[in-house]
Design a protein around this nucleic acid. Structure first.
Lengths: 340, 340
DNA sequence: AATTCTTTTCAAAGCGCTTTGGATTTGCCA
DNA sequence: TGGCAAATCCAAAGCGCTTTGAAAAGAATT
């Protein structure tokens, strides 16, 4: 069923049918009702491709996920983020165009998407320092919103968590409990968020006159295994730390496993504060949080990014919208005073 | 840059340029080289919308994810599955059209996608018994592949894990170790895979003359919390089981937490076999598996589904391709003989 | 009833591509 | 050199929609 057929059935021109459907005022309410009813009845929906071609708008948002070929490690947060975003798009008739790309070809993928006219805007994930994608998207004039911040220049739209502050808080919380040797188990420090968390951690220690000890600082992909392995290394030290801040829930699961295997109780013998993205399928407890954490919903970030992006698509030339979310410190049972 | 402009630059007709680009034989290799070079130079890529309109093929695969409004629980496996699928699509120029939908409106979303002409085929996830989506897609004539099986009729393409067999194996493994009271911690038993796992578990017990005890069988959404809660319930029993089979890694994390808090060692005091989807961001150990598990890569399933779907789009009328993957039993350190 | 102004409708062009059917050029042979 | 087939190329139609500019119908004014 297409426009032509529908208009034939109705005995009305395509123009009028199209206008009736799209809510233009130049059509009487009577015929509009007629058209709407017929469309409903015949299950007619405009062909998006034709619509896109005619209007020049694809009503699609691009979402590019790098394959991260090294370890085949897919960003575990992307599902929730994307769902949050898609949920918001829907309200305005946008859908998501999802593309996988090799790790170092993200920029190229955006360029192609634009050249092929398949999206009206894109979201940039996990920015690095002076991320090239930002430059390219600007050059192309393709609307975009960054989830996170690409250090360097700041003249674009973004939604980010205040990572520095979150990790200052997390570290302070442990310091207040009396801990002095505190480890950092961080994500890959090529990524902006990890850099900021490192800064927060270092800063908090410094403010209490403690020099951050590089031997207590670890950074890699945030897997359960990395958490496990690192915790084992820490326990094997001559003078093990009494606490750690970790960048994700998955890391914490590994940490807890290592502690358990060594007969140590989390929150008693060793304290852990994590950053909790509030993933829908990996909740940090239900009513009561399991781990003490700085929490910030990744899904909410997705919603905000989507909101801004749609706004920018609508009105391209506005001054950068920049949202920094504060993570909430929630206290679970993974922390306690320094064991005597 | 579009075809017209490109052909003007070259001083060649649009027809020839289009044909050169699409590898038709009616164009000399010399001009083809010329065209290709120019396209490259001017960063030309055909507008997908126009292409889709002209050819009637959108080169898009639909992927519908229910929001699961109740608990906002997003299927944690979907990321890996989708990535596997997308990886395969790419090789043949397909991209993914991703849409969120309310839980009970999946069928409608497929119908809309078809009416709007935005996809050439779709993948159906997490089928239920006699899933309505299958019927609708057949009626629409929209190519589809089911990931899993919708019990009921079997006249469609699918890729599934042999869930029954996997759980027979898992249960047998524990029986062989001497366990007799074995719990089942399963996913939501409205879903086909969970039903089959239940059958496998029940069957294995029965084959050893053991009646499955409903008090040891639990089923819900596969969250860490559900695993934790259930394990606590089990431990509180008069006569607790000595082992459990669990349907996912996330459940196992909760189980381990409960055991740890009760001072019990997994694999010594209590044995657990899980089903492991081999998620990229939640690996069950690296070189050595942590949990004894029936393992089947969800990413691989995604790849297979994609492969079949593209094939079916190409040649719609073929007899159902049905692949049943056997899960591999891998032995980790979460199982051991019955404690004395 | 004649004129003007609104309201409602329509035909046709255009979005950027593919593809059919026909035209032109080239190569080969006699 | 002429003739014919094969190799190249092209103009134009069509995919399903939106939108412009104009026409037809209806309402209002004199």
């Amino acid at each position: 069923m297409n426009l032509k057929q529908l208009s034939n059935i109705l005995g009305i021109s395509q123009t009028t049918v199209s206008r009736a459907l799209n809510g233009y005022p130049e059509v009487s309410e009577k015929t509009r009702a007629l058209v709407l009813a017929a469309a409903q009845k015949h299950n007619y929906l405009p062909n998006t491709k034709a619509q896109a071609l005619a209007t020049g708008k694809s009503k699609m948002i691009g979402f590019v996920l790098p394959m991260a070929s090294q370890h085949e490690m897919l960003n575990p947060i992307f599902g929730d983020f994307m769902a949050g975003a898609a949920q918001t798009y829907r309200t305005q008739g946008y859908d998501t165009h999802f593309a996988l790309t090799e790790n170092n070809k993200q920029a190229e993928t955006y360029r192609d998407m634009h050249a092929k006219g398949s999206v009206d805007g894109v979201i940039v994930q996990a920015p690095r320092e002076n991320d090239e994608r930002v430059a390219i998207l600007k050059e192309l004039g393709l609307p975009f919103v960054v989830h996170g911040r690409a250090t360097g220049k700041n003249d674009y739209h973004y939604v980010d968590v205040n990572n520095t502050h979150a990790f200052i808080n997390a570290t302070n919380f442990l310091l207040d409990l009396g801990h002095r040797r505190i480890a950092l188990i961080n994500g890959n420090e090529e990524l902006d968020f990890a850099i900021r968390r490192n800064h927060g951690y270092t800063q908090a220690l410094k403010d209490r006159g403690i020099e951050a000890d590089p031997k207590l600082m670890f950074s890699s992909e945030m897997t359960e295994h990395f958490g496990y392995e690192t915790m084992n290394k820490l326990l094997a030290m001559d003078q093990p730390p009494t606490a750690a801040v970790a960048s994700s829930y998955t890391l914490a699961i590994g940490i807890r496993r290592a502690l358990g295997e060594n007969g140590l109780r989390i929150g008693k013998d060793f304290s852990v504060v994590i950053h909790d993205d509030d993933l829908s399928y990996l909740r940090n407890g239900e009513a009561q949080p399991v781990f003490t954490a700085t929490r910030s919903s990744i899904r909410e970030a997705g919603q905000l990014c989507a909101q801004i992006l749609m706004d920018v698509i609508d009105k391209p030339d506005q001054k950068p919208k920049q949202i920094v979310l504060e993570a909430q410190l929630i206290v679970g049972s993974s922390t306690g005073p320094v064991p005597q």
